[in-house]
Design a protein around this nucleic acid. Structure first.
Lengths: 129, 129
DNA sequence: TGTCACGCTCTCCTTTTGGTAAGTACAAAT
DNA sequence: ATTTGTACTTACCAAAAGGAGAGCGTGACA
């Protein structure tokens, strides 16, 4: 398991697969679920739903299934009468969360810069000439 | 510009804005353009198009406009006869690229793990019982 | 005269995304 | 008997994403 240190993308095949994987994983809902499970540990379906707030049941189910399929979360079903299902991150999921951490930090630190850039871009239009 | 070191998300308002920003920036095409411009520097429209390979003109234009609006790229128009437009990352864009670097590395290193997880998830279905 | 190249823009079309609402199963509570 | 709560699933519908292809302006080049 000697992980090669540099991010060198040698093969174009690998690069294509990586692009594909990124496309799947860089999903809005996936990132949100990842962050919440990382912060709060093991959560039930409705707890997760309430934590995100704006997600529909359908999307949450779908997102969780995809994450489970990709080995990012573990789904534990307790065979009790009102269904109880708990979700938590795998090690793989935790490592992805850690990788995305840099992006969260970037977003927090550069939020103002982005908004200012937008104002500059949008603003000058009406009084141009 | 004394950047606060910890990723502490104090306000829920900030968090909402960050979620929003992440949703915009964690876009498949944005990430691809970001990576390519980071690697290759300043590129023309068609060079960018060919580098990505699978993107349509429409999406490339759209992605670049959004990135320009968000202050991630600079668009330089040379008023020559066959139009010549060059794109390069701003410092903000470069910093986002750096932040996403961790995700690329994660994807490269864990590609096999994800694929194996998928096989495990998909495989056992037919012979279950 | 005609064609090509570039960086778009526009229209038309299909696919994907995502929301709403209803249904399911079952036991405990009312 | 009816309601409640959970974690879905399904059907249906609207909106957005995204691809294909045509058009534009123009100057060099054949």
């Amino acid at each position: 398991m000697a992980a090669p240190p540099p991010p060198a993308d040698a093969d174009p095949r690998v690069e294509a697969l990586v692009h594909d994987l990124i496309g799947r994983v860089a999903d809005k809902w996936t990132m949100l679920v990842l962050e919440i499970l990382e912060e709060r540990g093991e959560l039930r379906f409705t707890e997760l739903s309430r934590s995100i707030g704006t997600i529909s049941q359908k999307m949450l189910t779908q997102t969780l299934r995809h994450m489970e399929r990709d080995g990012l979360v573990i789904r534990t079903v307790h065979p009790v009468v009102p269904p109880k299902v708990e979700y938590r991150l795998t090690e793989l999921g935790q490592s992805l969360g850690a990788a995305f951490c840099g992006v969260w930090i970037w977003a927090e630190q550069n939020l103002a810069a982005v908004e200012k850039a937008r104002e500059t871009f949008d603003g000058p239009l009406p009084s141009e000439g």
